[in-house]
């Protein structure tokens, strides 16, 4: 599935949820499904800045694609991380580099990428793209 199609799928799923509170509840549940993040990778140098809570990200190359693992001690951020990785994980570096982050705005999550929001998602996407460079 292309990145655009993945975003569209998630958008349709979120659009069916009536209000922001319920949307965040679903996002928190998505975080519960996140691939476990090894404790030994909770290192300062793997922290993504720009978030009120701690957010770690590590990447590894698997054949032609990049596999990311990430987590946060805040459950909403962790859910947003799961959502981003559902869109961007296990893709080629070219796909990740060329991905237009403006597309994420279509998800309709209020303030998802706003710098002042301090949920760190903007920084996470930046770091994901940086690691694909």
């Amino acid at each position: 599935m292309t990145i655009e199609a993945e975003i569209q799928d998630i958008k349709e799923m979120l659009d069916d949820i009536p209000d922001d509170f319920a949307k965040y509840s679903t996002i928190i549940e998505m975080g519960d499904e996140l691939e476990p993040y090894p404790e030994e990778f909770k290192l300062d140098e793997l922290k993504v800045p720009g978030c009120q809570s701690d957010l770690w990200l590590v990447a590894e190359r698997k054949d032609d694609v990049l596999h990311y693992r990430a987590t946060s001690d805040a459950v909403i951020v962790k859910g947003l991380v799961a959502l981003m990785l559902q869109i961007l994980n296990d893709r080629t570096p070219e796909e990740i580099r060329d991905f237009d982050t403006d597309l994420l705005k279509e998800l309709g999550i209020k303030g998802l990428l706003t710098p002042g929001r301090q949920n760190g998602v903007g920084s996470l996407v930046q770091r994901i793209q940086l690691l694909a460079a």
């Binding site: 509170f21 965040y24 978030c51 009120q52 809570s53 001690d73 805040a74 909403i76 951020v77 949920n119």
Partner: peptide
């Protein structure tokens, strides 16, 4: 986490 509570 306070950021989760404040967001909700």
């Amino acid at each position: 986490q306070s950021v989760d509570v404040a967001t909700l």
